[in-house]
Simulated assay, not measured.
Amino acid sequence: MNTQKNNENDLALKLFVVLNKAAREIADRVESDMRSHGLNPTEFQVLELLYHKGDQPIQQIGKRVLLASGSITYVVDRLEQKGYLERRSCPKDRRVTYAAITTNGKTLMDDIFPRHREALEEMFSVLDNDEKATMIDKLKKLGLFVKDIDA
């Protein structure tokens, strides 16, 4: 019975290592693609959010792309300097400022997002649709379980 417990522990450790290695390979490939367009991953995430969801309160962007609030200001400043987004005041509440994608930002995303999607499709093409759905389900289950440990 002790051998069975060791095998379970070994499997958990192996899963952790394999999951991390796979995630790192995918993240490295995606980051390389984004950098080839002059964006870092965080800048891309913010632009992608604005591209698909429209104007967003700057204070809420960090929660949407999992970034600390101090980092969001830096990223928004950089994207604004590059001409890809602009700040807009909220007419109803002066305390709220929105980030809005500019025409240049939309043009950039119109160009690079379809290629980003194709790159992701290529990376995951080793899996059929059933395997992708199963992985999504299992990884969500794992993430939710870990989130609730000692919560």
Rank of each mutant, 00 (worst) to 15 (best):
V75F: 13
E25C: 08
L85K: 04
R115M: 12
L19Q: 09
L49G: 06
G105H: 02
I26L: 07
I26N: 03
G70M: 09
Y98A: 05
E80S: 01
E43M: 00
A12L: 14
R115H: 08
S89Q: 14
K14A: 11
Q81D: 15
G38K: 02
D93H: 00
N20Q: 04
G83I: 02
H37A: 12
I26R: 08
V76R: 06
M123N: 10
V65R: 09
I72C: 13
R64V: 03
T107R: 11
I61Q: 11
R78Y: 14
L85V: 04
Q45L: 04
D33F: 14
L19I: 03
E31R: 09
V76T: 02
K53N: 12
H116P: 15
F113N: 11
A23D: 14
E48H: 10
Q59R: 03
V46R: 04
D110L: 01
D110C: 00
T107N: 11
V30Y: 09
M109D: 12
C90L: 08
G105I: 02
I61K: 02
I112Q: 15
N40P: 01
K21L: 07
N104D: 14
G70L: 12
N129G: 11
K82P: 07
V75L: 05
N20I: 01
N129K: 07
G38P: 03
N20C: 02
V18Q: 12
D130C: 05
G62K: 03
K63R: 13
D93K: 02
R78N: 10
I112N: 13
K106L: 07
H37T: 12
N20K: 13
G38Q: 00
V76Q: 07
P41F: 03
T97G: 11
Y51E: 11
T107K: 10
L67S: 09
I58C: 00
N40V: 00
Q60S: 15
A23C: 09
S32C: 05
M109R: 00
L127F: 08
G70N: 13
E48G: 08
N129C: 15
V126Q: 10
M109N: 00
K21R: 08
R88Y: 10
I112H: 07
V17L: 10
L50S: 03
D33W: 14
A119T: 02
Y74P: 11
T102R: 03
F16T: 11
A119G: 09
T107E: 14
D130G: 03
C90I: 02
Q45W: 15
R94M: 09
M109F: 02
N129S: 14
G62T: 04
A99I: 00
N40A: 01
V96D: 07
Y98S: 08
G62P: 09
L11I: 13
L39D: 04
K63W: 15
